[in-house]
Write a protein that binds this DNA or RNA. Structure first.
Lengths: 334, 334
DNA sequence: AGAACCTTTTAAAACGCTTTAAGTGCTGGT
DNA sequence: ACCAGCACTTAAAGCGTTTTAAAAGGTTCT
C-alpha cells in the first residue's frame, strides 16, 4: 500500500494510527474536533513518516486556495523588499503567496494569467502599468489590489503613497537649506510621474519660487538622469539642487556631475525617490523618499483579506504618507 | 450545469461540442489522436468560452508536474537575472518554474519545502549555503542542481563558473596595467570565497609577485569593503590595486577611498566580481567578472531535464569560463 | 460475410486531499 | 430503561484534470 519510494500520503499516516484520512486531515490543519489523544498520535505519526501535505491536492479539494497572486518586476529592488513583507503579512492571515515575475520576455498579461491558473483568490499587482480599464476587467475575475500607483475612479483597491506630498517634502527640505534654484528631472508620462511633477510644482509655488520651476524630461533610468544633468551642464546655468523622479534617475545625475567635477552636495544637491537599496550604498548616500514597504505590504494584504473573508465590496484607497530620508547628497545652498 | 459565475471547466467545453472531456483534453494538450475536424471545433469552443485549464487539477492528475522548483535569494540582483533566463530556458523544454524566495525570515529549508509541496520535479538552487550532506539528502528526494557553488564529491549536479580562474583574469589584467602591489579583500569562509582566494594567490605567484600577496578579511557586504579599505588607509601602505570578493564588497572599498580623497583609478584601481547591476551604474563603473547568467541558467535547466526525461544518473559538473569585464575603476599603475 | 486492422472517441479510474452529513459511543437526566 | 445531547470519528462525495483500456465506427482483405 505505502509504496516505499514515494511520498507518504494522508492515507499512509491514517493507516499508521488506525484512523480515517478525515481525522488526520482535521488534526493536521488544526481544525477543532479531534481529541487530544488523537491529535498527539497523528502528529507523531506524521512526523515519523515525514509527511508533507501535497499543496496541489489541497488546493484542488478545498474550494478556497488561500493563495494570493503577486505580480512583481523581478528587477526592482523595491519590489523585492515589498515581497518580503508581503510574505510575512500573508502568513499572519493564513494565506500563501504565488509569485509571478514579470520580465522583459514575460509581460503583465502572461504573468497575471499564470497567477489565475494557480487559482489565486486575489491579485496583488506591484506597480502595474496596464491601463485602468484592463485592470478593471481583471478585477471582475478576482479582487485586485494595485500597489504604488493611483488609479482614478476604479472599483479596485489601491495602496500607494502620496507621491506629490513626498516630492513636496524634498523641496521643503531643500528650501530649508537655502536653495531657491531647484530643478526637477521628471519620469515621463505615467501616473506616478505626473503626481511627482505636480508635487514639485506645487511646492515651488508654495515657497514663492514659481519663477525657478525648471522641469527636464526624463524617465526611470540612470541614463535619463545623466542626459538631463549633461543638459544642465552644457547650458551653464546649473541649479543649486536637482530633484529626480526616482533613485535610478538621481544616480544618473550624480554620475554625470561627478564626471564633470561638480561637487555634491558642495555645489549641487541631489535627491531621489524610493529609498532603493542603491541609495543606501555609502558610495551613493542619496537623500530620498521612503515608501515604507512594510506598511504598503501590510495594507495590500489586509485589503485582499477584507475582500475575501469579510465580504467588503466598496473599493478602498489607502494613501500612506511618504517619509523623507536625509542622507549625504543634499546640503546647504552655496 | 455551466454556472454562469464560475470559470469554465473542461466539461463545459466538452458539452458545448458534444464530446467527452477526454477528447477535449487530448486536443488542448496537442496530443495526436483526435481528428482535424474535432480539433478545430474544440479549439473554437474553448476560445469562445475563454477556457483556461486549471493548473492545480492538471498537476494533480498527471503524474508529471513539469515544474521546476527554483530557490532564489530575493535580494540578489544576480539571481534576478538568472531567474529571467531560467524562465525562457524552461519554457523551451516545456517546463514551468515555481519560485520560492528565501528571505531573512524564510530560510533555505522552508523555501525548499515549499517547492516540494508544489511537486517540483527537480530543484534548482541558486547559491545554496546548506552543507553538502544536507543537499545530498535533498537530492535523494528530487534531482538537485546547485548553481554557482562548488560541492566536492557530490552526487548532484553543479553548474558554476571557475571562480579561481575569474580572479586570475582580474589579476592578469592588473599586472598588464603595471600593478605589482595588489591586495585582496576576501569573502570569509564559504566555498566560493576559498576558490577566489586561491585564484588570487595562484595568479600572484604565477606573476612572481608572491611577496606582494596581501589578504584582508571581509565578506559579501559593502561594510566589509569599507572596513578593509580603511584598514589599508590607516596603515599608510596603500596598494596600487584592490581585488574584492564581490561587487558589493568592492563598492564598499570605493566608498571608503572616495571619502578619503583617493583617486580611482588614478591612485588605486579597484575590481569586483559578479557583474552586478550595481557595477554597471555609471557612477560606480566597476571592473568586474561576469558569470554569464544566461549560460548558467541554460545549463541548469538542461541538467534537470536530462535527469527527468533522459534518465541520466551520474552527476555532472558544468564549469563555465568567467569573463572579465573591464570598466573604469581600473587603470595604469602609478 | 466475416476477419483483421485502422482511426477516433469515450467511460471510468485515478491523483491526494477537503468537507459534509451521518455515524458511534458516551454521559447524565428523567 | 430510555432519550437527549455531547464529543469524536468516518464514509463518501467531490475538486478539475489526465490517462488507460476498451468501444465504436470505418476500411480493406480474404
Amino acid at each position: 500500500m505505502a509504496d516505499a519510494g514515494s511520498r507518504p500520503r494522508l492515507e499512509d499516516v491514517a493507516a499508521r494510527v488506525g484512523l480515517s484520512t478525515a481525522s488526520v486531515s482535521l488534526v493536521l490543519r488544526g481544525v477543532p474536533g479531534p481529541s487530544e489523544r488523537t491529535r498527539q498520535r497523528v502528529l507523531k505519526a506524521a512526523a515519523d513518516l515525514g509527511y508533507q501535505p501535497d499543496r496541489t491536492a489541497s488546493l484542488l479539494a478545498s474550494r478556497r486556495s488561500r493563495l494570493l497572486g503577486v505580480m512583481v518586476d523581478v528587477h526592482s529592488p523595491f519590489h523585492a523588499e515589498l515581497v518580503e513583507h508581503l510574505h510575512t503579512a500573508a502568513e499572519e492571515f493564513g494565506y500563501d503567496l504565488v509569485l509571478s515575475t514579470q520580465t522583459r520576455t514575460r509581460d503583465e498579461h502572461t504573468a497575471v494569467e499564470t497567477l489565475l491558473a494557480f487559482r489565486s483568490e486575489a491579485l496583488i499587482l506591484l506597480g502595474p502599468v496596464a491601463p485602468a480599464d484592463t485592470l478593471a476587467a481583471l478585477h471582475r475575475k478576482a479582487p485586485v489590489v494595485a500597489v504604488g500607483r493611483r488609479i482614478p475612479g476604479a472599483q479596485l483597491d489601491v495602496v500607494r503613497t502620496a507621491d506629490d506630498d513626498g516630492v513636496g517634502q524634498v523641496v521643503d527640505h531643500l528650501v530649508a537649506l537655502g536653495h531657491r534654484s531647484i530643478a526637477h528631472v521628471d519620469g515621463g508620462k505615467g501616473v506616478i510621474a505626473t503626481d511627482r511633477r505636480r508635487g514639485y510644482r506645487d511646492a515651488m509655488r508654495r515657497h514663492g519660487l514659481a519663477q525657478h520651476v525648471r522641469i527636464l524630461s526624463g524617465d526611470n533610468t540612470e541614463r535619463s538622469g545623466e542626459r538631463a544633468a549633461r543638459h544642465l551642464l552644457d547650458e551653464g546655468e546649473l541649479p543649486t539642487a536637482v530633484v529626480a523622479f526616482n533613485d535610478q534617475c538621481a544616480i544618473g545625475v550624480l554620475a554625470a556631475l561627478a564626471r564633470a567635477g561638480v561637487a555634491v552636495p558642495g555645489r549641487v544637491s541631489v535627491a531621489g525617490y524610493d529609498d532603493d537599496a542603491l541609495s543606501r550604498l555609502s558610495l551613493v548616500d542619496l537623500t530620498t523618499v521612503s515608501q515604507s514597504a512594510e506598511d504598503q505590504a501590510r495594507h495590500a494584504v489586509r485589503a485582499a483579506v477584507e475582500r475575501l473573508d469579510e465580504g467588503r465590496e466598496e473599493p478602498r484607497e489607502v494613501v500612506l504618507a511618504p517619509r523623507l530620508v536625509i542622507r549625504g547628497s543634499t546640503g546647504p545652498a552655496v
